[in-house]
Design a binder for these strands. Structure first.
Lengths: 210, 210
DNA sequence: AAACCCCAGTAACAAAGGGCACAAACTTAA
DNA sequence: TTAAGTTTGTGCCCTTTGTTACTGGGGTTT
């Protein structure tokens, strides 16, 4: 754990802070596809992402989902932090996109370090900023772009995050993330296949060039 | 200025901080409808809102707008802070919705106070959290709701923010905020009028009960 | 092999929303 | 008062997206 922590966070964190993290943080390895945080849940510790990727989802009353953004190495979930600080329930769901290793840090420590370590303060701030910007991007996508473009962006991002140009998802799963229906996704994917941008297979999509 | 500052922020800020704000902050009064911050602009000071309301907008490449949320008394614009801290250009446009008084604080001070005053740190954090939550709300609205509902919510919020059930806007202006066309807004408003929820006039809308 | 399930393709139709055109009502300026 | 500009109402049609229903392919289970 020490090496990974150092590798990922040494630019941000001072040595004593790293030591404290090593002391109180719990290292967890989570396989792909697990829900590590759910809507309505109370949060007692926040995750620092050492490797892998996590997708962050929003859900409405009817249970319809929407992908907000991905968290990648070195990042943390500010929305979760916000919930911690405000002592409120989680507003989002977080699901591992790939196999993931993360360090869980208890909330109390997070507040303590805020006064104690400049590096931690900066890191937390930077996280907030990144999340705000990601959310603005998300708003742009759903407000200004049509589904064709959103799907292409989604596929691109997926290839990047998983580092694999074979996207191993069903059309239905993609439809959930983009908050639309399976039929619509099938249609659009077929269109992209005709444009030679990808090849469709059962249970996976081979991305050629988007 | 002193009284307003105290009235609005005394719960957050310790006395020495208030003194510093009084010293370095510039009090500005802005009439309704002015753009106080625009996309692409560099930001050198951040606003603390003493009275009035500010609407925060996002714009895409083609110049299409979308209302993100309103800022009200005691709030500040975290997206602006994020830009300050990251030394990047503004991602948003801010327009006064009503006549507004605000205190502008130079960025350097903001960073200095961060280490110096717990009250300031908490305030800044809380702002970030509020903005994140507002943005999540915005995402919910545009992703999960249809235009009828979004329009009703918009009108409600407008009545609340301006404290006036006569909404003095043209259909075109509303259309810009919701990122749609004038014709569509006119249609939906007419529908709401038939439902006795409001009365339409030239240049203003009399809200009865939404 | 037969029965079954999951996934994808497709057609037909429905609904939401956007665009265009034009008319009517009202306001302002000449 | 006339002309010009602004705001709103409305009909018609188009595009995008969503819904339903059915098909067949491929794999799995029994």
């Amino acid at each position: 754990m020490k090496e990974e922590l150092l590798g990922t966070f040494s630019n941000y964190f001072e040595q004593p802070l790293i030591d404290e993290i090593l002391e109180v943080g719990k290292l967890i390895e989570v396989p792909a596809g697990e829900t590590i945080m759910d809507i309505g849940q109370y949060i007692r510790s926040i995750p620092l992402l050492l490797s892998g990727a996590i997708k962050v989802l929003r859900e409405d009353e009817e249970g319809d989902e929407l992908l907000l953004y991905y968290l990648e190495q070195g990042e943390t979930c500010s929305v979760t932090m916000a919930c911690c600080m405000g002592q409120t329930k989680s507003e989002i769901r977080a699901v591992t996109e790939t196999d993931t290793t993360l360090v869980m840090v208890p909330v109390q420590k997070m507040e303590e370090w805020m006064g104690k370590y400049k590096g931690w303060r900066n890191y937390v701030f930077e996280s907030y900023q990144n999340r705000l910007n990601e959310l603005l991007q998300t708003v742009d996508n759903i407000a200004f772009k049509n589904l064709d473009q959103r799907l292409v962006d989604y596929l691109k991002k997926k290839v990047e995050v998983t580092n694999d140009n074979r996207i191993k998802n069903t059309h239905q799963e993609i439809a959930y993330d983009l908050h639309t229906s399976r039929v619509v996704i099938s249609r659009l994917l077929k269109k992209l296949e005709k444009m030679k941008k990808l090849v469709l297979h059962r249970n996976y999509i081979h991305v050629i060039d988007l």
